[in-house]
Design a protein around this nucleic acid. Sequence first.
DNA 1: CATGAATGAGATTTCATTCAT
DNA 2: AATGAATGAAATCTCATTCAT
Lengths: 188, 188, 188, 188
Amino acid sequence: MSKNKQEDIFQAAMQLFAERGYDGTTVPMIANKAKVGAGTIYRYFENKESLVNALFVKCVEQFFEVIRTNFPQDADVRQQFNHIFRRMFVFAKENSNALQFINSHDEGYYLDEKSNQTFEDFLDFFRAVIENGKNQGVIRSLPSHAHIAIVYGAFGMLFSLIQSGRMEETPELLNELEDSLWNAIRII
Amino acid sequence: MSKNKQEDIFQAAMQLFAERGYDGTTVPMIANKAKVGAGTIYRYFENKESLVNALFVKCVEQFFEVIRTNFPQDADVRQQFNHIFRRMFVFAKENSNALQFINSHDEGYYLDEKSNQTFEDFLDFFRAVIENGKNQGVIRSLPSHAHIAIVYGAFGMLFSLIQSGRMEETPELLNELEDSLWNAIRII
Amino acid sequence: MSKNKQEDIFQAAMQLFAERGYDGTTVPMIANKAKVGAGTIYRYFENKESLVNALFVKCVEQFFEVIRTNFPQDADVRQQFNHIFRRMFVFAKENSNALQFINSHDEGYYLDEKSNQTFEDFLDFFRAVIENGKNQGVIRSLPSHAHIAIVYGAFGMLFSLIQSGRMEETPELLNELEDSLWNAIRII
Amino acid sequence: MSKNKQEDIFQAAMQLFAERGYDGTTVPMIANKAKVGAGTIYRYFENKESLVNALFVKCVEQFFEVIRTNFPQDADVRQQFNHIFRRMFVFAKENSNALQFINSHDEGYYLDEKSNQTFEDFLDFFRAVIENGKNQGVIRSLPSHAHIAIVYGAFGMLFSLIQSGRMEETPELLNELEDSLWNAIRII
DNA sequence: CATGAATGAGATTTCATTCAT
DNA sequence: AATGAATGAAATCTCATTCAT
């Protein structure tokens, strides 16, 4: 039995939102999985929308933190890409539902300004890396948006495969995938 | 006043499901947008779940049809990839909501056996192309699943950018994107 | 295919009302069983309530007619009872649903003044017979209401047993039943 | 304000079902009469069908209990009949709606296996008494079903008369009725 | 006349939220 | 603080009735 009910609620909500979406998840479902009373959720969050927004911000910031930590600011773009790619998998593995939650909930009509801004800030980090790579003549001259869409879109689906057991994560696989996606964005 | 109410319902439902998800869309919302009475929807579909499944199958089959039509069965893999990539954009442009609907609803807990099977059949087509390419030594030795995840995941996000106006579709852009994704999966 | 749609509707409605009650029977159910369009019912009856009332009156009047025909007005009470008892079974057998319909729908909140009056008239016939028997010192001094309740209540359940096949109708059985019910009301 | 909402719901439902039938009674009607919110009913019963079945079982078991209590197992059949007849009136008077509810809802298409079985068990009790009487040469050789139909059918209608005020319950009346129905089933 | 597609009012049921304990 | 029973607004779904064909 966890001491921190707020965290229990976050975990339960994240899993359910990831599996069934925002509207497909009921507050009693969350309470039940978190092993708290339904009313308790309203001690920690104003309402369901508040909860999903708080959770979204928390997840994106955690993801961001994992990516940013020890980021090789001065290394070359290839190494920066390596860092990002590996950290994305690290985060996804350690927070299996968080990634799916983020991916299926960005663009949700229930996200507030802060949530959207947090996600934009997160993307901006990648944009900066990409822009830097383009300036160095290493990365294709596509819009940064496009590069991010390619890597992030591919990554989301790839992790989903691993998560569901349809593909096994091995060091060799990760090497191949990293190489594949690097080829997608670099100038050849 | 349209003659075909079933089609009106399909169109309204597709747009709303794409924008707000299955559970976030109410039957009166659909009826309203389709300009039919709420009860009319139940003359055409047994219930809401029936509707989303019928719509899913219809959309996937349409998508499949666009990809399969004039597919260069005997050409080399690069040309097959070109065909697929271009047709994906053609379908997405002509059925802008259909793609978003498919992408946000595969894996939905409300999809029935037939819907899932239809989607699997669709993916199998790509798997066959990829396998063929691997046998010819043109495509990387990653699992076919992974190649599809990369291309399809990237494509989904890319089209979303174009759709929302954050990126402009030009012939040059499409050429670059095709090249980028081809680099991701081919042996270099 | 019957020529008389009104009669088809009556038959279908009677069977369904008998089995499922007034509120448990939908107009489309009736239309379906009567093999007419739902709208056709509204050519013959103003609405569902109109139909059930017309049907009730028709059934009670038919029942009444069967009882009254050849009623031995001048015979003794025992013979009058015999006539009534036998005719009740004749009617019930020839109009199997009608009896169940009447029994489960008298006291219905949807019955109008005319329906209730028709049923009262029907009961008055029995009351007169009973009163006559009481005056002759043949029948117990219970209220006529009570005698009717005993015979009619018993009869309803008995016929239900035969109808459902849980009891077989034989001449011997009918003789026994007639004797049993006569014993209930006569002075011994 | 009652403490036991489940019981309030039962009482309200029983009265309404007795008066208007299953399909003629809406859940909001029940909620309104029970002075609870409509949603509350679904905390206690899975759905409307569940409610009617639970109520039916409860009523039949209560009725059964009243009949069985202090039943003179070793007395003669006449005395057993006396016990049953009197207790039926006791139950009917104390649970005026319960009897009407039972009588108008047995054979309902919405009753489940358990409800039907409970009612059969109830009838089996009477069958045993009747069989015993037949073996002792006191009761007519009609099928037990028939005897029950006669007594129970008659009783139902008789109580309805008393209930509605069309007949007044006096000790003399009950004596007469008991004698009347006993004459119906005994060998004379 | 006859039909059955269409409708919307109203039925059943769910669920976000409150509040007495 | 924590609970979960209670609520009623809103969701899904049904059906008596209408009306264009």
